[in-house]
Simulated scan of single mutants.
Amino acid sequence: MALFKAGGLAATLKKRRRALTAIARAMRLFVPMCADVLSGRYRPVPWPAFGWMALAAAYLISPLDLIPDVLLVIGLVDDMVIVGWLLTRVDAALADYRRWKGEGPPAAR
């Protein structure tokens, strides 16, 4: 497996940089966005972001998984991949909020 070769992990992370950046950005912006929506400072409400985040939380909490967590490593990787993908969807749904906050599009950063 390429991951276990010399530099394999670094190369894999470099390839996944865009997704990892989107996940981190979604996690960093979601709570402040909720506060801005609840206080009425930000409208319209980004319902898709709430939906994707609810799905991510439900998948983490739910005992039903694509691959059971009993299969330790594979089950946990399954959770990370699916929740990571859902968080990239949250990030995409927060694009207008990022512009409103003055952070600009991801490519300009």
Rank of each mutant, 00 (worst) to 15 (best):
P63A: 09
K15M: 10
L64N: 04
L76A: 09
A108D: 15
A2E: 13
L76R: 02
R109G: 15
V45D: 07
G102K: 13
R28M: 06
L20C: 03
L64W: 13
I67N: 06
K5D: 15
L55F: 02
A2M: 09
M27H: 10
A2N: 12
G104T: 04
T12G: 05
G51Q: 01
G75P: 08
Y42T: 11
A108Q: 13
G51L: 02
P44T: 13
P46L: 02
P46Q: 03
A6H: 12
A54L: 14
W52S: 10
M33P: 09
I61P: 01
G40L: 06
L66S: 09
P63M: 09
R41T: 08
F30I: 00
G75Q: 11
A11R: 14
L72G: 10
P105Q: 05
P63S: 11
V31C: 06
L72D: 14
W85Q: 02
D65I: 00
V77I: 14
D36P: 12
M27Y: 03
R89V: 02
K5F: 05
A19G: 07
P63G: 13
A6S: 03
K14A: 15
Y42K: 01
A49Y: 03
F30Q: 06
A92S: 15
A19H: 09
D36R: 00
V31S: 12
L9H: 06
F30C: 08
L66V: 12
G84K: 02
A107M: 11
V37Y: 05
I23T: 12
L64P: 02
